[in-house]
Design a protein around this nucleic acid. Structure first.
Length: 625
DNA sequence: GTAGGGTTAG
């Protein structure tokens, strides 16, 4: 007989046992062992002991944490029978439980039934956070006003309930108002309130306000650092994430899984494989290796950095795979042009009983479009709403426009846009514009361009894309028009850059760059390569024509510098050279294709949306240049 | 001996 069972037996055989039961319950609930706490409660009832005001708060809290409304209601009955309902400790935990179980009206009823409620800050706070959780913003505000009118004390927890719903886009005005109240009541220096305000700012995209608050916070805890790091990560500011993470470590803070998730997702964004690997080592060192969130982030990071094999190994080793894990690996294969594998995995996921969500559909649809699996993609799109009840959003329509557009079905793509119910975004018209470039459709490109710059007037990528459409059509007047428009709007094309990671360092190149220490050797190598490309015979007819065009417009593009640098420094023939390019689409694919044939090396180029694998002058992505 | 709150992957 174990110690534990002995203890149960002992407890069951005594008559005055409430205090012991209560201690056990409290300990379990405080350690977040909520299932255990509830089973202790049941044991207690069976043993004949009656629960009291010191028992209920922990049992009720456990119900709330596990989101068990039916058990919660049963507990409410027990409370009623034992006459504990007017105990403030019991009442507040019941209100909080109803709020967390989405039974906010029950919470309100309980609050109103007891006149004492309107005198106690804790009662107001629990109802307030319930309204916040259930997105009842108006009720939150009304309740707060009532507190002020009645002169009920307002504390930090009150403000937390108020701040929470302000993170929803559109509520920032209210949020700033709440921030003002915090300052007025001297609660803005409370670290929890500060963390909450910080989260509110970064969630509404006001990252600079968030940073200002962060810098001003006198006591920054791990949660504060995490909120800022993940705020940067969610707003796509991956460089800031890595910078802040370094600063955090230099101040002696130990990261937790939440920190590392943000850092890994930024590594994935930047393709910073060496930092990502370092994070993986840290994960192992701190004993976070089995954290499912971190493993999902790791799969995503390896997939996006080009190491699909490693991503797959980690994925296969995960004991529990959620829809997020599947989405990460499916997206990985999709980006690498292995749409067939992505589709197989998606079907396998469904067979395994995992219900796909909107994001899972985005990854499988984009995999289909990159691999040219047009009909398969159309099938998935059809099944999305019919079978899974998921209404397609703008992001799904973008994938479909991309899918149809790449396949040359431009009119169908346009019809799809016209028929859809959701509001079009920039990505949608951008996808159509991209397809027009592939299929050289100037007229439709002009239409798509007009729409896209209406929605994203400062995104220079689209201007460049239209200009490239005109270039290919030999329309000089058009090119000029785009340039004039950019000048009029004071837009400058941000310089595209390419980079190669070599021995744990990132070597970055801009077009015409001469800043690299090996500049002379790089240009010499590039010159050599250009001459080889010029003399190359035996490429396909289509490539031949393109080569002529390419040779007529030779410039020192960033990708070329990256290729020359990589060939200069890596000797192993089996080594794959990965070049990252942050532009909307790389224009030097032909050069890389030809070089890969000449020097018999493998290249992987990543642009903003996907990877292109080059081997022996062959590109495995079904791309339609 | 007791209650109310904040950060979480694509």
């Amino acid at each position: 007989m174990t110690m534990k069972t002995k203890l149960y037996h002992h407890l069951q055989s005594t008559t005055t046992k409430n205090p012991q039961w209560n201690t056990l319950l409290r300990e379990a609930a405080n350690k977040s062992l909520f299932t255990k706490a509830l089973s202790l409660y049941l044991h207690m009832l069976r043993s004949g002991a009656s629960p009291n005001a010191f028992t209920f708060p922990f049992a009720i809290k456990s119900c709330a944490a596990l989101s068990l409304p039916i058990t919660g209601k049963q507990l409410h009955c027990h409370v009623f029978k034992t006459g504990c309902l007017l105990e403030p400790f019991v009442q507040t935990s019941l209100i909080s439980m109803y709020g967390k179980c989405s039974l906010i009206d029950n919470a309100r009823k309980l609050f109103d039934e007891n006149p004492q409620s309107r005198k106690l800050t804790v009662c107001y706070n629990s109802l307030l956070s319930g309204y916040a959780l259930n997105s009842r913003v108006k009720d939150v505000v009304v309740l707060f006003c009532e507190m002020r009118e009645l002169g009920v004390e307002i504390n930090g927890v009150t403000m937390l309930g108020l701040v929470q719903p302000c993170g929803i886009p559109g509520n920032l005005g209210l949020g700033m108002c709440v921030h003002g109240f915090c300052v007025k009541f001297g609660l803005d220096m409370d670290s929890s309130v500060g963390n909450c305000l910080l989260t509110m700012y970064v969630k509404s995209g006001e990252i600079d306000c968030g940073r200002k608050l962060f810098d001003e916070m006198p006591r920054k805890g791990l949660i504060t650092w995490n909120a800022m790091i993940n705020g940067y990560a969610q707003n796509g500011l991956a460089n800031n994430v890595l910078e802040l993470y370094k600063e955090m470590e230099s101040k002696g803070f130990c990261p937790d899984p939440l920190t590392l998730v943000g850092v890994l997702s930024s590594c994935a964004h930047l393709g910073a494989l060496s930092v990502g690997k370092e994070v993986e080592r840290k994960m192992e060192g701190f004993g976070f290796s089995s954290n499912p969130f971190l493993n999902n982030a790791l799969v995503n990071m390896y997939a996006r950095c080009g190491n699909l094999k490693k991503a797959r190994d980690i994925f296969d080793g995960m004991p529990v795979k959620s829809v997020v894990s599947w989405t990460a690996i499916i997206g990985g294969y999709g980006m690498h042009g292995q749409g067939e594998v992505a589709v197989e995995l998606f079907d396998e996921m469904i067979r395994g009983g995992i219900k796909p969500d909107g994001t899972a559909f985005v990854s499988v649809l984009s995999a289909c479009s990159h691999a040219g699996l047009t009909n398969k993609g159309l099938d998935y799109f059809g099944v999305m709403e019919r079978k899974y009840g998921l209404r397609p959003g703008a992001e799904h329509y973008s994938c479909m426009v991309d899918l149809l557009g790449r396949a040359g079905r431009l009119n169908e793509a346009r019809e799809l846009i016209e028929s859809m119910q959701v509001r079009a975004d920039g990505a949608l018209w951008g996808a159509l514009l991209g397809a027009c470039k592939i299929h050289r459709n100037v007229e439709l490109a002009e239409l798509a361009f007009e729409q896209v710059i209406e929605l994203e007037p400062t995104n220079t990528g689209y201007y460049v894309l239209l200009s490239n459409v005109y270039t290919e059509a030999g329309n000089l007047e058009g090119i000029l028009r785009v340039r004039m428009l950019m000048r009029k709007r004071k837009l400058k094309k941000d310089p595209g850059c390419s980079y190669v990671e070599f021995k744990g360092r990132v070597h970055l190149f801009f077009a015409g760059d001469r800043n690299h220490p090996q500049t002379n050797e790089i240009y010499k190598k590039l010159n050599e390569l250009e001459n080889l490309v010029k003399d190359l015979d035996g490429c396909k007819k289509n490539d031949h024509e393109r080569r002529e065009e390419y040779l007529n417009s030779m410039g020192v593009h960033s990708e070329k510098l990256a290729v020359a640098f990589a060939l200069l420094n890596t000797r192993k023939e089996t080594e794959i050279i990965i070049i990252k390019n942050l532009r909307i689409c790389g224009d030097c694919h032909l050069f890389i294709k030809l070089v890969s044939k000449i020097v018999d090396r493998q290249f992987v180029v990543r642009d903003a949306t996907r990877f292109h694998h080059f081997k022996n002058g062959f590109c495995s992505c079904k791309e339609y240049w």
